[in-house]
Design a protein around this nucleic acid. Structure first.
Lengths: 125, 125
DNA sequence: CTTGACCTTCACATTGATGTGAAGGTTTGA
DNA sequence: TCAAACCTTCACATCAATGTGAAGGTCAAG
C-alpha cells in the first residue's frame, strides 16, 4: 500500500510515517516511480510504534525493541550482542517501572472517581 | 527543606523543580529571604511527577491527576466539575492503553531474552 | 491533454521537557 | 570580613516529536 492508505489505516500523519522511516523503524519498498510501498504488516508495526512513543519511549529505544516482536524471531539471534541483551534487560526494567507507576495512578484515579460518585449520590438524596 | 535538598532526595535538577512549580505541580512556601521552602510530602510528589512524565504524560494532565493522590481527598470534591470528571475518565482510559501496550512489549522482550538465553545455552554445549 | 488527487523532497516552525550559565542576593564558618 | 556554598531570576540553547507548506513529479479519469 502507499503512504496515504497506511496513514488512514493507522491514523498517523504522513509526515510521521516518513519520520519513523528516517529513524529506521519502518522500511518500505519503493515502487518504480519512487512512491513508498508498505507491506501489510506495517499497519500493526506503526500502531506499536505509536503506542510506545505515547508511553514515553524514544525512537532510539523503540528501534531496539521492535525486532523482539517479529516472528519468526530466530533470524535475529546471531545479531544479539551482549550489549544489546543488556540494553533490552534495562529497558524491560524501565518498562516495569512505568507500568507500576501508571497502574498505581490509574487505580488512584479510579478510587477518586468512585469516591466522587458516592459523594454526589449522597448529596442528591 | 530548600531546593537543594529536594533535588538531592528526588534526583531531580533544581531547574526542573522550578519548572514543575511554574507548571503548577508543586507549591513551595517562601522563606523570609525568598528561598523556596518545600514541605516533606513534596519528595513523594516529585517522584510521582517524574514517573508520570517518564510514562508520557504532559504536565497539563499530571496537574489534573495529582489531586486524586492527595489524602484526605474529601477537600477536593466540591471542585470536581463534570468536565474534570470526564477528563479523569478519559485519562484513565489512556493510561489503561499505555499499560496494555507496555505490558505486551515487556512480555515480548522477556520472551525474546528467554529465547536468546536458550539459544546461547544450546550453542555452548 | 488537462485537472485533481496522489506522491516526492526539502526546509522551516513549534512545543514541551530539559541543559547551561550569567548576574546577583544570603548565610555560614574560618 | 571574606570565601564558599547556598539561593534567586532570567535568558538563551537543545532535543525529539510534530506541524505546515512550498515546489515539483506521477497517474487516472473526464
Amino acid at each position: 500500500m502507499r503512504i496515504g492508505e497506511l496513514s488512514e489505516r493507522t491514523g498517523t500523519p504522513r509526515r510521521l510515517l516518513r519520520y519513523y522511516e528516517e529513524q529506521g523503524l519502518i522500511l518500505p519498498e519503493r515502487a518504480a516511480n519512487g512512491y513508498r510501498d508498505y507491506a501489510g504488516y506495517n499497519v500493526d508495526r506503526v500502531v506499536q510504534i505509536r503506542g510506545l512513543l505515547d508511553a514515553g519511549l524514544p525512537t532510539r529505544i523503540i528501534k531496539q525493541i521492535l525486532p523482539c516482536l517479529d516472528k519468526p524471531r530466530a533470524i535475529y539471534f546471531p545479531d544479539a550482542t551482549p550489549e544489546m541483551i543488556a540494553t533490552l534487560r534495562g529497558e524491560r526494567e524501565r518498562m516495569d517501572d512505568r507500568i507500576r507507576c501508571l497502574t498505581r495512578n490509574r487505580d488512584a484515579i479510579g478510587d477518586y472517581l468512585d469516591a466522587v460518585l458516592a459523594y454526589d449520590h449522597a448529596e442528591a438524596t
